[in-house]
Write a protein that binds this DNA or RNA. Sequence first.
DNA 1: GGCTTGACAATCG
DNA 2: CCGATTGCCAAGC
Length: 112
Amino acid sequence: MAKTKDENFFQNVYEIVQLIPAGRVTSYGAIASYLGSKGSARMVGWALIASHAKSGIPAYRVVNRNGLLTGKQHFESPDAMQASLEREGVRIENDQVVDFAKLFWDPAKELL
DNA sequence: GGCTTGACAATCG
DNA sequence: CCGATTGCCAAGC
């Protein structure tokens, strides 16, 4: 395996996303902050796009700060993200996670 | 090597 | 309350 420093950032994102418990969600900013690149939540989103090439990355558990399924458009189907979340017990309303504050999973705290 | 884009976030109007 | 703008950082062209 070619372990280049560049993949480090992506690898970190993949690991965190896979560590998200079912029925829970987190935000890009939280992951970015945990990685140290706080403020650059976009990088997390970019890594998630790359994660699409790799199976086993539940990217649907990652939503924006408002709990809005902004990235659903990047899935096979715009409804796949919501359907997957609802299947795990997460209720979605108007493309937004219900009780997002309760379901929010912060790696900096949970993985403390 | 520089400009553009982007699954965000925060602020301004 | 909602639309537009800026900041952030890395990848793509």
